[in-house]
Amino acid sequence: MADRLVPIISLKDFVNRKEEITKQLVKAAETAGFLTLVDHGITVDEIEKQFAISKSFFDLPAESKGKTPHDSKSNNGWEYKAQLRPSTGTYDQKESLWLQRGSQWPSEEDVPGFRDATKEFMDKCAIISNQVLSCLAIALNFPENYFLTANDPSEPDCLTQLRLIHYPASENTPEGTWRAGSHTDIGILTLLFQREGEDGLEICPGRESHSSFAMGDVFTPLPAHTGPIVVNIGDMLMAWSDDRLKSNFHRVRAKDAGKTPSRYSIAYFNQGRRGFVLQGPQKKYPPMTVGEYFIQSVQRNFARQQAIAA
């Protein structure tokens, strides 16, 4: 089911195959809102190296990780089971480290080589993101480099982030326990790296509007493999495409009851430049800046969270 729902798309020979790749990307983006990339240019060894660096950070004692504290204004830094999901009314059972190029980083003393290796990994993610976004820009009748300008991580107002994620092991987990509640991603495009055998991701197509919380009834597991990149459309790109490209719900759940192993993942969130004006080619929605869109999205989620609590 997952293989049929989420197509595998090769970026091999990208320049010469761009038209073919664009058609494949658009078809996936218009339906599942998810796809899997292979032949993307980041080797398995490079991915495993970044996971090892991530684990080195999460293996630190809490007081060491806390040297890079989470800042609620920038959403950068280390947080531990602090993300409350409106869909479940519970906190996600994970810890994470949010990073931007200009944010505070773990010290060289605590995790040797962390900053240089992670920035190099982020640069590789940006290259892949730009390839996908250039195809989608063409399909939406924008200039080919439109999203490259709107999402340039070298600009100081760019909100793009890397998130290193760790779901701690548990000795007595009820079957189906939420590790991350159902949600969509607010930004433009997400690249997700998983490790072989560390399953739990489930996806659910069926959303029609970027501002609604409607979802389908069936969540489909997407097995974890080291190497392929799971890519999904975010709310912002759904709005930017006049709801043509789908930002669909996904979650992480414990597969079996009892002992649940650790799960690690790495997400690269393309989130645009705060001051860039967002409006789709059909002008279905009024123009607003990326920064304004983020504020409205947070307010929608907060209102929903309050309603659930009541």
Rank of each mutant, 00 (worst) to 15 (best):
R115V: 07
M215F: 01
E144Y: 06
P106D: 05
G33T: 04
K23I: 04
N172L: 11
I47H: 05
G206I: 03
D243S: 14
A307H: 00
I203F: 02
D199L: 15
T118K: 01
W240R: 13
L5C: 05
D217K: 01
Q104N: 11
L133C: 15
T184I: 11
T260M: 15
A52S: 08
Q83C: 14
Q100Y: 06
S96G: 12
G181Y: 03
Q271Y: 01
G227Y: 05
H70W: 07
T43R: 15
E120C: 06
K283R: 02
R274Q: 09
Q131Y: 06
E48F: 04
F51R: 08
I127C: 15
I186C: 09
A267C: 03
D256L: 15
D242K: 11
Q83T: 13
P221R: 14
M236S: 06
L164G: 00
I9S: 09
Q306M: 02
P61F: 05
K259L: 14
S241L: 10
G200K: 11
Y80F: 10
V252K: 13
F249I: 12
L201F: 08
K94I: 07
G197F: 10
S209K: 08
D71M: 05
E95P: 07
K49Q: 04
Q282F: 01
S209C: 06
T260C: 15
E155K: 04
I203M: 09
K27W: 04
H40V: 06
E198Q: 11
N16R: 15
N16H: 12
S262R: 03
L192K: 12
I47F: 03
S10A: 12
R163G: 09
G176Y: 02
